[in-house]
């Protein structure tokens, strides 16, 4: 678990596929609980963990897709799950 000095919220942070390399130590099954400031935006977390923004293709907050313009908004709440994928597809 990553402790931040100005802890305001605790969320579940997930990075999948090739983005798993950017997960901090202590993560399990591509998932880690992190404490973040109340004002954190999705893009701030993407930058904090050095995920290239152009690889943060599928950004889901509680399973719901975040449009590019929403990723700089203060929309994360305590207990939320933020999950991110690079461009992927299957069938």
């Amino acid at each position: 678990m990553q402790e931040l000095s100005d802890r305001g919220m605790r969320i579940t942070f997930k990075l999948y596929a090739s983005l798993a390399d950017f997960l901090p130590a202590g993560s399990e099954k591509h998932t880690i609980k992190i404490d973040i400031p109340d004002t954190s935006t999705p893009n701030e977390l993407i930058d904090r963990y050095k995920v290239p923004r152009d690889m943060a293709h599928l950004v889901l907050l509680n399973g719901i897709y975040l449009k590019l313009e929403d990723r700089d908004r203060n929309i994360i709440k305590d207990g939320d799950t933020l999950a991110i994928w690079p461009p992927v597809a299957g069938g």
Partner: peptide
Amino acid sequence: NAVTGQGLPTYGTQVLMNVINEIG
């Protein structure tokens, strides 16, 4: 293309398992 050049060769179609689960 990131999907056909990287994602599919590395993870196959199975990369969708966590995606589709996450979106319910």
